[in-house]
Every structure is written in structure tokens, then in C-alpha cells.
Amino acid sequence: MNTYYNPDDLKKFGKISEFEPNLAKKFFDYYGEVFKEGALTEREKSLIALAVAHTIQCPYCIDAYTQDTMEKGCDEAQLMEAVHVAASIRGGATLVHGVQMMNKYKELSM
């Protein structure tokens, strides 16, 4: 079956440098630095990445960071809580715009 997403393409991520090596190098260096242990642990960063992956709904990132959080010692409860954090921010962002809707509604109403 042909689909837009192919799991094997994830392994080829590095190959984006074929068309533009300089920017790709800058990006991968930056990426590597970002995920190093700093004020946040590697584990915390990986969980954030997993939540963001769900927010942007990138199947590559979901694959990669499910595995990465597991390798960082997280269990299923921790992974799912991270997804709920993403979901609640998404849901909250929708709902908080309800205030805007209410403002407009009231503005237009007698």
C-alpha cells in the first residue's frame, strides 16, 4: 500500500543534508545540543518531545520519541500522561477561545 508516510523514511532523516548540507548540519548540531542534559534532564526533554510530537501529530516523531522515552526509562503511565498534557493544552487552547466567542456574541446581542 502506498502512503505519504513510510516508517523507513525516519532512518533517512539525516539524508536531508544531500540537498542542503550547511543548513542541515546547523540543524542537527542544534538538535543534538538541545537534547543534551542541561537544566532539564534528558528524560524530561524526551517526554516534552513526545508531548509536542502528539501536538504536531508527526508520526515520525511519535515513533522516535515513544522509543526514546522508553529507552530513558519511562513507563506507559508516564508516556500517556505526557500525551494528556499535550491534549489538555490543545483542548484548553480551543476552549479559551470560547471567551472570544462569548465577547463577540455579547457585543452583537441586545
Binding site: T41, E42, R43, Q67, M70, E71, K72, G73
Partner: peptide, 11 residues
């Protein structure tokens, strides 16, 4: 499972 272990120190 089929994944590698995390850093020993962090674990």
C-alpha cells in the same frame, strides 16, 4: 522490550 537501556546513572 526491544529497546536499549537508559543511562545507568539516571536510572
Amino acid at each position: 522490550g526491544a529497546f536499549l537501556p537508559a543511562s545507568q546513572m539516571a536510572l
